[in-house]
Amino acid sequence: MGHSQADKAASRERVLRVAARKVRAEGVNRPGVADLMKEAGLTHGGFYKHFASRDDLIAQASAVALAEGSAKMERAARKNEQDPRAGLVGAYLAPQHRDAPATGCALVTLGAAAGRGDQHFKEAYEKQVRAYLDLIAGLGDDSEQARAEAMLTLSALVGATLMARAVADPHLSDELLKTVAGRLGRHASGAPSDAA
Score class of each variant (00 low, 15 high):
Ala113Leu: 09
Leu157Ser: 05
Tyr125Arg: 05
Ala112Trp: 10
Lys122Asp: 00
Val167Lys: 11
Met151Ser: 11
Ala164Gly: 08
Ala156Asn: 10
Arg147Val: 09
Ser173Asn: 04
Gly159Lys: 10
Ala113Cys: 13
Gly159Gln: 09
Ala160Met: 03
Ser155Cys: 05
Ala137Thr: 04
Asp141Met: 03
Met151Arg: 14
Asp169Ala: 00
Leu135Phe: 00
Ala166Trp: 10
Lys178Met: 06
Met151Ala: 14
Gly115Glu: 11
Gln128Thr: 06
Gly182Val: 00
Ala166Pro: 09
Glu149Leu: 14
Leu176Gly: 04
Val129Arg: 15
Ala114Arg: 01
Gly182Leu: 07
Thr153Phe: 02
Asp174Thr: 08
Asp134Gly: 13
Ser155Gln: 05
Gly115Ser: 04
Ala137His: 00
Thr153Arg: 01
Gly140Ile: 02
Ala164Met: 09
Arg165Phe: 07
Arg130Pro: 03
Ala150Gln: 04
Ser143Lys: 15
Leu157Glu: 10
Ala131Asn: 14
Glu126Gln: 15
Lys178Ile: 07
Gly140Lys: 05
Ala124His: 05
Glu126Leu: 13
Asp142Lys: 14
Ala113Tyr: 07
Glu144Lys: 07
Gly138Trp: 08
Leu133Tyr: 03
Gly182Tyr: 03
Ala150Thr: 06
Gln145Phe: 06
Met151Gly: 15
Thr179Asp: 12
Ser173Tyr: 01
Ala150Trp: 06
Met163Gly: 00
Ala112Lys: 12
Phe121Thr: 13
Tyr132Met: 13
Ile136Asp: 01
Ser143Leu: 12
Gln119Val: 13
Gln145Asp: 13
Leu135His: 00
Glu175Met: 15
Ala124Leu: 09
Leu154Gln: 01
His120Arg: 15
Ala146Phe: 08
His171Glu: 15
Gly117Ala: 02
Leu133Lys: 10
Ala148Val: 14
Asp169Arg: 06
Lys178Ser: 10
Asp134Cys: 01
Ser173Met: 05
Leu172Trp: 02
His120Gln: 11
Val158Ser: 04
Arg165Ile: 03
Ala148His: 12
Ala137Ile: 08
Ala131Lys: 12
Asp134Glu: 12
Phe121Asn: 02
Gly182Ile: 01
Thr179Ser: 07
Gln145Gly: 08
Leu177Asp: 10
Gly117Phe: 03
Gly159Met: 04
Asp174Ser: 12
